[in-house]
Simulated scan of single mutants.
Amino acid sequence: MYLKTVSDEEATAEIAEAYAAERAGMGTVMNATRALSARPDMLVPVDRLLNQLRDGFSLGLEAFRMITLVVAKHVPSNYCSHVYFRGLTRFAGRDQALAIQADHRSAGLSERDVAMLDYAEQIAIDASRVRAADIDRLRAVGFSDLNIADIAYAASFRCFLSRYYDAVGATVEPQFLDDDPTVREQLTVGRP
């Protein structure tokens, strides 16, 4: 980490609560959370927004994780690629998660999932190129405007967080790194 962050010993009030909750749920405090503590007044609101978006995601957690994995590849963000690959494997399995990360269009996904990930990918690459036809395509495969907004929120928020984590030097925790060096290399999409 390039910045000084709030250590466990220094954590008080809401930051101490956030650290304790993450430690209770995951057994550790992630570097992503520590990175947010460099601006202590932002950790809790950003974390709440992420939780609200993820927990209330109209398309479910698996879709949220597919979106974040595809977006992380195109930001590009090593940190988020490794973390969300690990998270997606719990839903889709390791081989499917690898296929989605490599090229979601040839990963055997439904037309609906491909359209969703195409839209998320476009947001990550250049959201200014999204057109009404892109939204019409999403509607044509069954997405509501709420679903489309959720996809846009998830992709845009991942761009924000991924870029922030890279900008402050957050590094991937060992427990998120795959045991296979080839897979680690595939997921290393940004700074080595």
Rank of each mutant, 00 (worst) to 15 (best):
R48A: 12
M42Y: 15
V83K: 07
F91E: 14
V70E: 07
L98H: 03
S106C: 14
V83L: 14
M30D: 04
R48V: 13
D145E: 15
F64V: 10
I15C: 04
M30P: 02
D126Q: 10
L138C: 09
A120N: 06
L43K: 02
I151W: 09
A102F: 12
R139V: 03
I100H: 02
V46I: 15
R90S: 06
D134K: 06
A115D: 00
M30I: 05
D118V: 00
V141H: 06
M66T: 07
L98K: 00
A124L: 11
S37L: 13
P76Y: 09
H82I: 08
F64A: 10
R39K: 15
L69A: 09
V71W: 01
R94N: 01
Q101D: 13
A102D: 13
S110R: 08
N147G: 02
T89L: 01
Q52G: 11
R86I: 07
I15G: 00
K73N: 06
Q122M: 09
A152W: 01
L98V: 09
D41M: 12
L138A: 01
I123R: 05
G142Q: 02
L49P: 10
I148S: 06
E62G: 11
A35P: 00
A38C: 11
E111I: 02
P40G: 03
L59C: 05
A120G: 00
A35N: 02
V44Q: 12
D47L: 15
D95Y: 00
S128W: 05
I148Y: 08
L117V: 03
E14N: 05
S7D: 05
Q101C: 13
S106Y: 09
L138M: 05
R137H: 09
A97F: 04
A124F: 02
L98Q: 04
A21S: 12
V83W: 06
M26V: 07
R105M: 13
L61Y: 03
D41Q: 15
R86M: 14
